[in-house]
Structures are given as C-alpha cells and as structure tokens.
Design a protein around this nucleic acid. Sequence first.
DNA 1: TATTGTTATACTCTATAACTATA
DNA 2: TATAGTTATAGAGTATAACAATA
Lengths: 121, 121
Amino acid sequence: MVELAARLAALDLRQAEASVLILVAENPGVTASALGRRLDIRAANMVPLLKRLDEAGLIHRAPIDGKSQGLALTPAGQAKLARARDTIETYEGELLARIPRQHREHLLPALHAIWRQEPEA
Amino acid sequence: MVELAARLAALDLRQAEASVLILVAENPGVTASALGRRLDIRAANMVPLLKRLDEAGLIHRAPIDGKSQGLALTPAGQAKLARARDTIETYEGELLARIPRQHREHLLPALHAIWRQEPEA
DNA sequence: TATTGTTATACTCTATAACTATA
DNA sequence: TATAGTTATAGAGTATAACAATA
C-alpha cells in the first residue's frame, strides 16, 4: 500500500484524496460530513483535505442550505480521477499478477469478506 | 490492522515493538542495525524503540565489539512475547474465521506471494 | 572508508477540544 | 438539540541531517 501511495504521489494525490475524488464522482452533491463518515475521516481533517482539492481546482462546493455544501468534481477533477483510476488499476493488476493462478481468484472474495465485516470488529 | 494494534496496546506494545520481540527471539544476539534493515525501520527510529523495550525490562543489550551490541530477550521479554503471540494468533484466527471456507485456504498463500516480492516493488 | 549507534529535528497523518452558525 | 463546517493544537509515526566512535 506504501507503493500505491508513492504512485499516487506522482499525480500529486494522497490516498485519502483519491478516495474522496472517487466518492465525489459516484455521489455528486455529497457533503463533507457524509464523506467523512464513509471514509472514517474526522471532520476536522476533512477541512484541509477539501481545501487542498478545492485550491487545486479539482472539486468545487455549492451551498445546499445555510450550513451544508454539496461537492462535485470539476473537469480538471474528472481528468485527475481518470489518471488516478489508471494508477490504481495498474497497481492492482500487478499485485494480482504476482499471485499464483490457483490462489488468485480467491483473494478478492476473501478480502471482501474481511472488509465487509471490519467495522463491526 | 488497526484492530490488531489496539489489542497489542492492551499489552503496552506497538506493532513495531512486537515485531522486534519476535525477531530478537528468533535471532538472539542480533544487532539493532540488522533489525532495522529487516523491518525497514531507520536507525534513528530504532533508538527510542529499543530504549523503551530496554527500560521496560523486555530486552537487554550485550556489547559484541566496540560499536555493536547484541540484543536478547529477558525473561520478562519472553513472557511478553508469549502474550503478544497469543494476541496475534487469536486475531489472525478471527480474521480467517470470517472468510468463507472455500476461499480461506487460498488467502495466506496469496498474501505470502505478495509479501515475498514486495521489497522488489 | 563504511558501519553502528546516537541526537536533534521536521514532516505527515490523525486525534481532541472548542467554537460558530444553521437545521 | 443535533449537525455542518471550521480553527487550533497535540500526539503518533516516520523522515532527514549531522555526528562520534569503531570496524
């Protein structure tokens, strides 16, 4: 995972930022607090993270009401996300390629079984 | 992995410290620099880590020559390691138990395939 | 000359506390 | 009263730089 972080850094993105771009793309208009709950990032830490993405021109915020703001990707944000997706998929592909074929198909189902229940741990 | 760290914290151990105890037990007389290379911990960061284990009475250092010192577990360190091993094995057992039986036996071989080659990444 | 151990320090990531404004 | 967003700050964990002593 350190390796993936290093590759994302070449795009000037951290892992958490890439996760935010993915979720914002899938949920346009999502709020910062909803994102934080989904990604387990504290509200206090979302502030500088979103500020950086905003100042980089990757996201923009539109007021929903007096206290909430909806997030969306800018065109630059969509382009950056496309590059991040490439990076992530390439990395995952290389990782899977290392695994002997007879084990490979079982890895993702096994990991998903762990992730799904992780929050209850 | 955050969950494992929390359980080790109940033994007043961090993950890196548990790793050091395991390696010192397997390699009595090992030096701090060799440990650091094996665990990818910088020499500068080994100093406070080993100091803490030393002050807790878990390891002791014996001069090998004028500049190297060999590390070994004290009886208290061996006892602590035994409890750490229990914690780790219990955690791993619980993790494996979550995985559907047909995938379970493939997980560890798949992960080992990744870990083995990780340093070359 | 390279290595061991060390000190000091900076940076990143994440956590808590306190606060304002709005639903 | 609970929630959204924010600010300031503290704590881990890890990084670099520089150093003394020894192989």
